[in-house]
Nucleic acid binder design. Structure first.
Lengths: 254, 254
DNA sequence: TACACATATTGATATATGTCAATGAAGAAT
DNA sequence: ATTCTTCATTGACATATATCAATATGTGTA
């Protein structure tokens, strides 16, 4: 499905975050100015210095520990969330299980479709690794959409890209068997999220299952088969794809 | 993902189109002016008379016979398509089978996500019943998005509504069993598309299967079970839901 | 160290669902 | 009418996948 949300992943994943606990900082703290920030989401590239300052003035920073919920499906949604470090997931809470729509890494944003409808979240978001994020008031965001056509166009473009990504996702979920779906998720992780080949999977097996729309046990079994066939190795959550070509073929033959 | 596309369904379905063959009119023909047209898509409500005229001047009308392809996944996409009569479907051609993302009825539009990306279609569209449609040059559409913030905001709102619809669709497809999925499709047809209770199903069983992500045979079997349980009746493609409450429960229990 | 707890793994089993093949029914074309 | 073609229906069967239960592994804490 279909396609899906207003989230984008365009930048490279910098470095795997060590699992050391962060100090909890949940109070508002204006850190360095947006204009000078190297964690600025690329969607803001078309904004003037004045407009950046507008974003900056309504912005505040929050830290989340791994596992913490960032926002919950059904709740009101007054913020544009920009993930500046760590890894988060957005997921729909369905009938007894979750479907992960995407993983969000720095510097990407989370901006649900409810904001232009009824100001509610239509999916939940949670920190997979310890995260920091900048929150921006949506009214500022909407104001800029109205006032800056380049920004509006860029936004629509990103929404469109996300739709296209989601088309592939729905087809994978509804028309491929488990092997193909797991293959797709592995490519998503290695190419789009961790962007390395031997990569440390900071997501759980349950998350892997929620990404591929199957039970945790099934996901584990497929992984085991892939190991036995020499397609990949896993040791203590570090996965390496050994036979990309074969994995690609599994993805394509469903 | 469902989650998916830039299509919207807001208006009521007027009347079931009889299956008489239309005269094929595939040449350009400017019919009556947009400004006076009662088939105007509601997304245009915020446009000034001057802007409406801009749409009108770049617009032309086409007829499609049932079964004909309107456009094909992968091809370039220079038009905004507004369905003015009949019924169309948009569908992704996946691995051996299709997934219908939505049915499009008058007066709704088809406007794929590729238009702001690489100008290609990411799904196909075909006439289910005989159709007429108005095509508008996308450059005109994009120009209006840039120049009229109300129109841009309305457009984003509709894209968002579609995303939300697609969330439900993906959850239905990936987390419900066949009975629940068929129930969802029946509600979609009776509440959103035909908008009547005894309604004539102008879509085929294959379409029904492609809407619910299962094989044609399975879809037929579930329908048969529903008939046997007295939930609905079908005679010569006229379906009537007899026990809405039970059908709703089947939808919710997956 | 030992315990408690969460997460990962494995096996056995039930079942939901697709595939294949055959038959029937309804139009369209001759 | 009769043939032809497409679509709908039904049954038999194979299998992909979830569920349940048991065990293992790891991780933080007292």
């Amino acid at each position: 499905m279909f396609y899906i949300s207003l989230v984008l992943s365009l930048s490279a994943y910098p470095k795997i975050r060590p699992k050391q606990p962060y100090p909890m900082v949940n109070k508002t703290q204006h850190s360095s100015n947006c204009a000078a920030c190297n964690c600025k989401a690329s969607i803001f590239k078309n904004l003037s210095p004045l407009e950046i300052e507008l974003i900056n003035s309504s912005r505040f920073q929050v830290s989340y520990k791994a596992g913490e919920i960032i926002f919950k499906q059904g709740t009101p949604s007054p913020y544009f969330v920009c993930v500046t470090s760590g890894l988060a997931k957005i997921y729909i809470e369905g009938y007894g299980k979750n479907l992960i729509l995407a993983l969000i890494k720095p510097v990407d944003y989370i901006f649900g479709p409810g904001i232009y409808v009824d100001n509610r979240h239509y999916y939940s978001a949670a920190a997979v690794e310890d995260c920091t994020a900048c929150l921006v008031d949506v009214t500022v965001f909407k104001k800029l959409i109205r006032e800056n056509p380049d920004f509006a166009e860029e936004f629509i473009k990103r929404v469109s890209l996300q739709s296209i990504f989601n088309f592939d996702q729905v087809i994978s979920l509804t028309q491929k068997q488990m092997h193909g779906r797991i293959a797709d998720v592995i490519f998503y992780l290695s190419d789009k999220i961790y962007c390395q080949n031997p990569f440390e999977m900071t997501i759980s097996r349950q998350d892997l299952a929620d990404l591929s729309g199957m039970s945790k046990e099934s996901a584990i079994r497929i992984l085991k088969e892939f190991k036995e066939e020499g397609i990949l190795t896993i040791s203590s959550n570090t996965m390496e794809v050994l036979n990309t070509k074969q994995l690609r073929q599994i993805s394509e033959t469903g």
